[in-house]
């Protein structure tokens, strides 16, 4: 199957902030392949360089060594094959929800009528049809994050880069949005690379889970989830196999062993 996103022996170091200070190596020799329509989750301790990977994939940053490919071509800058969604919704407060969703297409000079049409369809799908003309501050956190998902989907990217998209939401809203996301990814046949802190989220949404080490981050383990119903995390998270997978991930991340906190 076609490879949509590939990290090839990617290392990223940051120069020292001050003269005489020490530089930081965020990630070392990361090799990852994400196939078409696959959802791969990445978990790891805080500050292990997970977000650095996303910046490299989205073209906001360049690797120090190695290469990043999206759809077979090397990433040298921002490109329309990928779109990302972050923990913060980053809705622009001066734009209505509709204008926020069309923001990306507006930048790419998509015709006004066309982008409105796409956005309205997406907003209806994400239950925001009645809030098209509202402003972000009038919406709840969950609704705002849904609008952010609509903005991401409006770009019709091949690969979605998701950086802890639901970690700021309360537990119930989070489950509802995970459901929305999983359905969308499945129905639209999208490829996704999901960074998360939430082990259960990783298992519920992904086909594979990659585990990253402490900084400098390396991929230390890959776990195939191998459970049905990837389009229905509400059901998937109730399966009996979940406990065993959780235990495996917890031990890989040293959770519960000496109770150290990564803050």
């Amino acid at each position: 199957m076609a490879i949509r996103l590939q990290f090839e022996r990617v290392t990223k170091s940051f120069p020292p902030q001050r003269r005489g200070g020490e530089g930081v190596t965020a990630i070392v020799d990361v090799d990852v392949r994400v196939a078409d329509r696959e959802v791969v989750a990445l978990i790891g301790p805080s500050g292990c360089g997970k977000s650095t990977l996303l910046n490299l994939a989205s073209g906001l940053d360049r690797p120090s060594r190695g290469r990043v490919y999206v759809d077979g071509s090397e990433v040298t800058g921002p490109n329309s094959h990928v779109a990302f969604m972050l923990q913060r919704d980053l809705l622009l407060p001066w734009r209505s929800i509709l204008d926020n969703v069309t923001f990306g297409q507006e930048i790419q000079h998509v015709e006004r009528e066309r982008r409105r049409e796409i956005a309205l369809k997406l907003l209806a799908k994400y239950h925001l049809g009645d809030f098209v003309d509202h402003y972000p501050h009038q919406l709840s956190g969950g609704m705002r994050q849904r609008a952010a998902l609509a903005r991401t989907m409006a770009m019709n990217p091949d690969v979605l880069l998701l950086d802890e998209p639901f970690s700021a939401l309360d537990a119930q809203t989070k489950m509802v949005l995970q459901q929305d996301l999983a359905r969308t990814l499945w129905e639209e046949k999208k490829t996704a690379f999901l960074i998360t802190h939430d082990l259960l989220e990783a298992i519920a949404l992904a086909d594979r889970v990659l585990v990253m080490s402490r900084r400098p981050g390396r991929i230390v383990r890959e776990i195939a989830v191998d459970l049905p119903e990837r389009n229905n995390p509400m059901v998937r998270r109730q399966r009996p196999e979940i406990g065993k997978l959780m235990a495996e991930l917890m031990s890989l991340l040293d959770i519960g062993q000496g109770d150290r906190l990564d803050g």
Partner: peptide
Amino acid sequence: DPAMINLARTFNATRWQIFWK
């Protein structure tokens, strides 16, 4: 917020678009 500017950059916004939008 630099994250907002980065968001626009991932959409391939020009410097001028980042300013106006």
